[in-house]
């Protein structure tokens, strides 16, 4: 087995996905099958071959730091689930122990 249900549950927690037990039952065997399949890359003799992260070989680009028009507060907040005083309102980040 390439990956266990417990490992999938751990990865889901790291990915901030609150998967239900039913979802874990469903997704874990599929992921096991997918990982077994993609593991074929390990057959390839690739010693000394450099990795490619990006096909066209571009390097970083820079621009002059000039002020340009930006979104108004109303535009930026248009899709906000909650807002207050022209700010995104979010649930508390720190929980008291």
């Amino acid at each position: 087995m390439a990956i266990t249900r417990d490992e999938v549950a751990h990865l889901a927690r790291l990915s901030r996905l609150a998967l239900s037990d039913e979802e874990l039952d469903h997704l874990a065997p599929q992921l096991d099958q997918i990982i077994s399949s993609v593991a074929q890359v390990q057959e390839v003799a690739a010693e000394g071959i450099p990795p490619t992260s990006h096909a066209t070989g571009l390097t970083n680009v820079f621009r002059d730091d000039e002020p340009v028009a930006c979104l108004s507060p109303a535009e930026a907040l248009f899709g906000a689930p909650a807002e207050e005083l022209q700010r995104f309102k979010v649930p508390r980040i720190l929980v008291e122990e």
Binding site: V8, L11, A12, R13, S15, R16, L17, A18, L19, S20, E23, H26, L27, Q30, L31, I34, I35, V38, V90, P91, R92, I93, V95
Partner: peptide, 24 residues
């Protein structure tokens, strides 16, 4: 909490294939 909000929002908002690929 913010973390619980994220995890529940993502579970409710993404479909199976998105979840498979995020975990993979």
């Amino acid at each position: 909490s913010a973390e619980e909000t994220m995890s529940l929002s993502r579970d409710a908002g993404f479909g199976d294939e998105a979840k498979r690929r995020i975990v993979l």
